[in-house]
Structure formats: C-alpha cells, structure tokens
Amino acid sequence: MIELAGLRKEFAGTVALDGIDLSVPAGQIHGIVGRSGAGKSTLIRCLTGLERPSSGSAVIDGIDITAQRGAALRRARRSIGMVFQHANLLDSLTAAGNVAHPLKVAGVGRAERRRRAAELLDLVGLGDRADNHPAQLSGGQQQRVGIARALAAQPRILLCDEPTSALDSATTAQILSLIASLRESLGITVLIITHEMSVVREACDAVTLLADGRVASTGSLRRVLGEPGTALARDLLPLPEGREDSAAEVRASGRASVQVALAGTSVPELFALAETAGAPIAGVEAGTLETIDGLQVGRLRLLTDDAQALSGALRAAGIHVEEAA
C-alpha cells in the first residue's frame, strides 16, 4: 500500500512535483505515464528517500519514508525493490553476486545467498548465466538481473523507472509477464514508470498521468479507457503507428473520414447505428481495438461519403467523435 499526500518537490527554480495525492492499494500494478520532465522519476525517488520532498508525505505500508533517517531509512528501504532504467549492476560482481548483494547487505549467510540467487536467476530465465559479469550480458539480460536483484530481499513494493525502455518488444513482454506473475505469487505492489502505452495496456491495473508535476488523471485502466475523450485515453489507445495522420490521405483521395473513440460499443453496433441514421460507413481506414477488463475499447478512422452526417449521427448516439473531415 502506497499513499502519497501533498507531495511537493522543488529543485532550485523548478517545481518538479506540485502537490501529488495518490493511493496505490496493495497488490496493484500501477503505471505512471507523462511527458519527459513531468516528474515521474522524482515521484518514485521520493518514495525511496533518494530524493527528499520539499513537503508532503510518502507512506509505504504505514511508514512515512520522507520522515526516515539513518538506520530507520535503511531498514525501510529493505522492503522496497527498485529497478532502474539502466540496470545499475555492479561490474565487479557476477550476475549471481549482483542478485545476492541485497542479501549480503542484510547479513544473510553465504550458502543461503547462493541458493536464493540461483533461484531468482532461474526465475528470470538466466540460471545458466550466474557466473557472467554484467558486461558479458545483453541489455535485456542485465535488466532481468536487475529485477532479480530488486526481488532478492523479498520486498513488499517494487518500484520500476522505465524498466523496459531500452529493450525490444519480445524482451519487454517477457519482463512484463514476469512482473505480473510475481504479483500473482508474491502479492507485491508495483509502481512502474513508462512512456510505452503498450506497457500500461498489457501490464497495469491502474494508471496515473502526470503533467507538470500534477496528477492530470488517474484511475483503473477500465475507468480511464471508459472516458474516451481524455488525453490519457487517447495516448493509451492511439491509431496504429503511421496511420495517425491518414485523414489527409483520405481527403486527397476525394473521400471523407470520421475518427471515433469507442468504449463499450462494438464495431457491428457502430455500423448498425450509422446505417439506421442514414449515414452509412463505407469502410475502416485504420483502427485499434482491444478488450480491457471486459470492456471493448478502441479508436477507428471510418471512411464515409458524408462526414457531417456520420459524425452528427454518431454524436447523437453518444459515441465520442474526435475529428470529422
């Protein structure tokens, strides 16, 4: 359980966090998204004591991290696992040594450390790389070692700052399913910063959009996507890559298009609606469709002969029309 209240952080001249209130229940995988400079990293760092907020509190399982110093802070940190964007492994240690490091710091004996490290490396699929130094591992493998290390001391909370942004999509999927399975088996709470909306769609239960150091919107994935008009919903489900600006192409070819965001309306229902209103849909130029938590959501660019009539009809039926041209 993570609770941020009135969290504020100023650096000389800039306000990085401007009063953040946020609550993440135990066992949730919570995504943090937002533009570069929005304050995402600062927020996570305030939860670790690596950064001291100017005011406000960051409470993890009943302990206000911002109020801890010295030995108490070190103790509190042992229940938090942190995965960094660049794995930050120690080059002087092997993969197994890196994974076992938190246990060494905690005073766990050598035999137990070795056993746990082997176990965790197996968990992240690197059981055969125990004796390799980080320089002998690929970026994705290093990141997986970093995750294994973050889990070594059995934390209650896992904080991840862009854990997959340096990875290809296959490795990203691997790491996300690893995080999901950890939540299932260990019940840990996960806070994950990302700029990849696909990560949020695939891995998160809830998401928070930060803008200029404030919470611009937050809620379960289902709720956020259920309000198709918001910028966050639009970012989460964009049109397929390369088709975002295809409206101009459509126009050039002498046709008209209407872009809609769907939440809870199926495509057949959409076509039927248009048909009944006398403004039939001639086709779909581009689209994204997904079912998230039982909710059909998506974004479509529809082809039509009369954009005015179609958008009017759909609006009247409560469909969110984003552009018509």
Binding site: R78, F84, N88, L89, L90, H101, P102, V105, R149
Partner: peptide
C-alpha cells in the same frame, strides 16, 4: 563510478561504510 550504482546499493539498505567497501573500491579498482 556512476552514481546510479551507489543508489542501487543504497536501496538495499546499505550504510556508507558498506557502500565504500562493497561498491566504490571494487568498482573503481
């Protein structure tokens, strides 16, 4: 030695003495 490595070990709950002995000296060796 990249500061990120220090932070990674600080997050393990390491004290400054441990950080110097277990991180700084071996990494800078």
């Amino acid at each position: 030695v990249p500061h990120g490595k220090v932070e990674a070990v600080q997050m393990m709950g390491a004290a400054n003495g441990q950080i110097i002995r277990q991180v700084m000296v071996p990494e800078a060796l």
